[in-house]
């Protein structure tokens, strides 16, 4: 729900301000790749209506966000290609593919794709964080969006602890990826919490 909320917040921000200054389209592209790799199972397995609906919403809303930022004026006119230039193709995609291949529990295409998607998701926030560090001053809605985008994985960790004790659920790759992902946010969260506490604008060091 937090993940969904972060997407809705971003959509709302783009529609309301008609600007995507401070938003990394490259992060959305990473997520689009994550979703396409992971949700291939839409074609051959059914878990629940909720699960299927969320997958479809995540994929379609993420592609819509990319479309808005890259191609749809007036939002696309505010997109700064030079600032949002983190080369995830080299730094994230390659390593995620290699890690996905060597750490997959089983060498099948869906399993390798799933594993690679977990590793890629764990670092997908990097383009966004690096963009914010260049700008330093973060708009309120952008701050909420990034905070919810980080918080959802933290709540997964709580759920994993519950599931481990309640059902003996084990998911080593998911857990490790989740810890890396949450760890990358800790720094941002700190500055976000401080700005909320003091009721000031979020300014990154």
């Amino acid at each position: 729900m937090l993940h969904l909320m972060s997407i809705l917040l971003l959509l709302w921000k783009l529609k309301k301000s008609k600007s995507c200054v401070g938003i990394s389209c490259r992060m959305q592209e990473c997520y689009a790749i994550v979703f396409c790799l992971r949700y291939l199972d839409l074609f051959y397995q059914f878990i629940s209506v909720y699960n299927t609906a969320m997958k479809v919403v995540f994929i379609s809303s993420t592609f819509y966000l990319i479309f808005l930022m890259r191609f749809q004026p007036p939002v696309s006119a505010t997109y700064d290609r030079t600032a949002d230039s983190f080369p995830y193709e080299q730094y994230l995609l390659g390593p995620a593919a290699v890690l996905g291949f060597i750490s997959a529990e089983e060498w099948s295409i869906p399993e390798i794709f799933w594993t690679a998607s977990i590793w890629l998701e764990s670092v997908s926030i990097l383009p966004q964080l690096i963009l914010l560090q260049q700008l330093r001053e973060v708009e309120n809605l952008t701050a909420e969006f990034v905070a919810t985008m980080g918080a959802y994985r933290f709540f997964y960790i709580l759920n994993w602890i519950y599931r481990y004790f309640a059902e003996g659920y084990v998911n080593w790759i998911g857990w490790l990826g989740g810890i890396v992902q949450t760890g990358l946010y800790v720094d941002f969260f700190y500055y976000y919490a401080m700005s909320k506490w003091y009721g000031q604008k979020l300014v990154l060091p």
Binding site: H3, R38, D41, Q45, N51, M54, S108, W114, N171
Partner: peptide, 10 residues
């Protein structure tokens, strides 16, 4: 086999 059940998380 857990994989037969598939990944049930998003």
């Amino acid at each position: 086999d857990a994989r037969l059940v598939g990944h049930d998380e998003l």
